[in-house]
């Protein structure tokens, strides 16, 4: 097909599998950082807001490929020899954490202040207010933008190619190096990225519309 053998196609698909693995790492890691970050950014004290704000500014002010380099070489300088997967996973976690934190901060702030008050006034403790009253409402608001951001994570995981991580972009490049059919090879890679992302982004739109109708 377009001068690409089945084996080569399977090789590219294998890369796509690693793209999904890295994206999942980024999303799970990012969520673990993002949730406390969102709470700190929306409800924390001044010092906590300043520190977490600095983190967000830092991550948002550095291009993702540079974060990848820093994670990969920074950690190997300090004596640990990390596989690219770990470095890329850490970089994606830092990146997704900052952005998910900002997205979710907005969702928490979208829950009316009066809900905090009502929860406080039936004597719920701060953590209980968050768990039983605020987060369930914020989560509903967060679903659509979170799924939307998942698409960004998947696409941006391709930057891991700069530290030699074997993903969809990397495997396509390898196949291209042996076939010299860049247009065909990268079109296949593009189609696979699209096939992964399109269902997610259309799901995000649908969820957004459903929420708006409420």
């Amino acid at each position: 097909m377009f001068g690409i053998s089945i084996d080569q196609l399977l090789f590219i698909v294998k890369g796509a599998g690693w793209t999904l693995v890295l994206s999942a790492m980024g999303f799970v890691g990012g969520a673990l950082i993002g949730l406390p970050l969102a709470l700190a950014r929306s409800r924390g004290g001044r010092a906590l807001k300043a520190i977490t704000g600095l983190y967000v500014q830092l991550v948002q002010g550095i291009p993702l490929p540079v974060i990848m380099f820093v994670a990969y070489f920074g950690i190997s300088i300090s004596g640990f020899d990390l596989p690219a997967l770990v470095a890329a996973g850490l970089a994606m976690t830092a990146y997704a954490g900052a952005y998910l934190g900002e997205i979710w901060k907005g969702c928490i702030q979208a829950v009316p202040r009066t809900q905090w008050e009502a929860a406080e006034c039936i004597a719920l403790k701060p953590l209980q207010r968050v768990l039983y009253v605020i987060l369930p409402q914020a989560a509903r608001i967060a679903v659509a933008p979170t799924v939307g951001f998942l698409v960004q994570i998947i696409k941006n995981s391709s930057y891991a190619v700069v530290i030699g991580f074997f993903d969809l972009t990397y495997s396509a490049r390898v196949v291209n190096n042996s076939t010299f059919r860049p247009f065909a090879v990268f079109t296949v890679a593009a189609l696979i990225y699209f096939a992964i992302c399109y269902p997610l982004s259309s799901l995000s739109y649908r969820l957004e519309r459903r929420l708006a109708r409420r």
Binding site: A118, A123, Q137
Partner: peptide, 26 residues
């Protein structure tokens, strides 16, 4: 106890869940 002008019920819970949240958790 306090009751507000804008009710401030918890919209993601049924009426009974709203009423029992305090007794159960507090």
């Amino acid at each position: 106890g306090i009751v507000f002008q804008s009710y401030n019920l918890f919209p993601h819970m049924t009426v009974l869940q709203n009423v029992t949240l305090g007794p159960r958790k507090v």
